[in-house]
Amino acid sequence: MDLLWRHSVPQRGRGRGPKQTVSVDAVVATAVALADRDGYAKVSIRTVAAELGLKPMSLYTYVPSKDALAVLMVDAVAEQDTPIPADLPVRGRMAAVARLVRAELIDHPWLLDVPPWRLVLGPGRMRRYERQLAAIAGIGLTDVEMDRVVAVLSEFATGNARMAIAATLSATALTDVQWWERHGPLLSQLMPVTKFPLSARVGAAAGEHYQAPADPDGTFEFGLARLLDGILGDRA
């Protein structure tokens, strides 16, 4: 907690130990850059120390563990959130809540590998939550409903971002045309139209429209619009 709020809480004396040659901010920024480049699994005390030109044991004078470092990393990314313009209509502000969550995950896919449950709240995540609540304040929701709306929009955006990231990764393997050329004949035998009439019809229409197995961007826009319709009702 002291590390998360290090810019707000007076720091205790360090006591004995080697002199620090970089800052905690530099350690966290290096870890984020490493995760962006190589993935969360590659982040460790040893690899971050190597990036900084430090010995692994010396990094423990900055952060006590990889788990603690992960919390700092998540909060540092949240610190980069852009404000939601207050002059937007309420529907636009609510949409911005979801769009910002999705964009952050697509920019930093490793965030999906960090367990989200009970992450310690730091200044970045608290500021984000305050902005999200401000985006939906004053429209007639109770406090609990406001929290649920933020959660629903965030979780929808997170699920869709996971699919968008997967689609990006799959683009480096077979193209859709190549995949169907390889697997299409067998699938036609295993899944005849007579046995799966609705799947065949809808799948063909969707595939023709998407020109891909799925359309995460289009699904996001479609789903977000329906979510906002349901949440806002007559408030829009």
Rank of each mutant, 00 (worst) to 15 (best):
A41R: 12
K55P: 00
L69N: 02
V48D: 03
D36T: 08
T61I: 09
V63C: 04
V27M: 09
S44T: 15
D36L: 08
P64K: 10
A35C: 05
R37E: 12
A50L: 04
V27G: 07
A31D: 04
D67W: 14
K42F: 14
K55G: 00
S58V: 15
L59Y: 00
D67N: 15
V27D: 07
D36G: 04
Y40S: 08
Y40L: 11
P56Q: 13
L54D: 06
A50M: 04
V24A: 13
T30G: 03
V24L: 15
V48I: 14
V43S: 06
R37I: 09
L69A: 05
A68L: 01
P64F: 06
K42H: 14
G39C: 03
A35G: 10
A31S: 08
S44E: 08
P64Q: 12
D67F: 15
A70H: 02
G53D: 08
S44Y: 10
K55I: 02
R37A: 13
A33F: 02
S44L: 11
G53Q: 12
V28I: 13
Y62A: 04
T61D: 08
L69D: 02
E51M: 09
R37G: 04
K55F: 00
T47W: 00
A68P: 02
R46C: 06
A29R: 14
A68H: 05
D36K: 01
A41N: 10
K42W: 12
D38L: 11
A50F: 10
A26N: 12
V43Q: 01
L59D: 03
A70L: 08
T61K: 14
V28K: 05
E51L: 07
A49I: 13
V63S: 04
A49M: 10
S44I: 14
L52D: 00
V43R: 04
D67S: 15
V27Y: 06
R37P: 02
P56W: 07
L59W: 03
E51I: 07
Y60L: 15
K66C: 13
P56Y: 01
A49F: 13
L34C: 05
A68Q: 02
L69C: 05
Y62G: 00
P56C: 11
A41D: 09
P56N: 10
L34G: 02
A68F: 02
A26M: 14
V32T: 00
A33G: 11
